[in-house]
């Protein structure tokens, strides 16, 4: 069996005494698209944020490309890596946020090239060339000099996708990338993600777009009650609907 790109074992996360999840196991192989579905508050966002090391976690391990991130064992004690190393480990993942979180004081080009220049240390001209290439890929070749405030929500989210993927992460994480969008702008963003999937990108996507999850995913994960309640192919999850909780959850989406 091949080594998975992302390997999560027995992951547990608490906010103080509030348990978000416990004993989460998940593997994502290179080139795979995995969707996470589940009710509001089931911990989908928190799981992504743990993988991106934006949250601490109290139990278990996350391996990216075979190496533990966030925590390591030292004298059989669990220790968080220093921030310097955490910052480097974050480069293995790319994050696309629900609210885009573009830098409002920069153009689209500035947003995408900033990390290339200051983290990857590319010279400005090279970084901007690379950034424009990605902006073209998401269909915004003509908006490179627009500020976020001059772009529609769908365009902003596409800039955010370009910003994440330009850093060449091993895996892209999406947290409900279309939830903040007007319905008519959802399609353009989903199409970009589908295109990336077709090009072989490895992705973990939290979404409430069930049709999209069905179409794009190799594997679907259903989170419920502080754990991964079901996991399977889109057909297994959406058509066979083996558990009652899953049936109940999916019935709230009339698809």
């Amino acid at each position: 069996m091949e080594d998975s790109l992302l390997r999560i074992r027995r992951l547990g996360k608490w906010f103080g005494s509030l348990k978000v999840f416990e004993g989460v196991d998940l593997d994502v192989n290179a080139g795979e698209v995995v969707s996470i579905i589940g009710a509001s508050g089931s911990g989908k966002t928190t799981l992504l944020r743990c993988i991106n090391l934006l949250e601490t976690f109290q139990a278990g391990s996350i391996l990216l490309d075979g190496n533990p991130v966030g925590y390591h064992e030292e004298n059989s004690k669990r220790k968080r890596f220093p921030e310097r190393i955490i910052a480097r480990q974050r480069l293995l993942t790319g994050m696309v946020f629900q609210q885009f979180n573009l830098f409002p004081h920069m153009t689209a080009l500035g947003n995408v090239s900033l990390g290339l220049r200051k983290v990857k240390k590319l010279p400005r001209a090279e970084a901007e060339k690379e950034a424009s290439r990605w902006l073209e890929r998401v269909g915004l070749g003509d908006r490179t000099h627009s500020r976020p405030s001059q772009l529609s929500g769908g365009q902003q989210q596409r800039v955010a996708i370009a910003r994440a993927i330009a850093m060449n992460p091993k895996i892209l994480l999406f947290d409900e990338p279309t939830s903040a969008l007007d319905p008519e702008l959802v399609g353009e963003v989903l199409n970009v993600i589908k295109q990336l999937a077709a090009d072989g990108a490895t992705m973990l996507i939290v979404t409430h777009e069930m049709r999209f999850a069905y179409e794009v995913s190799d594997k679907v994960v259903f989170m419920d009650n502080g754990k991964i309640a079901s996991m399977g192919t889109p057909t297994e999850i959406f058509e066979e609907r083996k558990s009652d909780r899953l049936k109940e959850f999916l019935s709230t989406f009339n698809n």
Binding site: A87, G94, Q99, N101, F103, G115, A164
Partner: peptide
């Protein structure tokens, strides 16, 4: 400044000083 700005900075691999200088200070 929304917290998401800091997180977006972290997500592109910035350290805290870089987030201060390139993202928070100008805004």
């Amino acid at each position: 400044i929304p917290r998401g700005q800091i997180e977006a900075g972290k997500a592109i691999g910035f350290r805290f000083g870089q987030i201060l200088y390139y993202i928070l200070l100008p805004q």
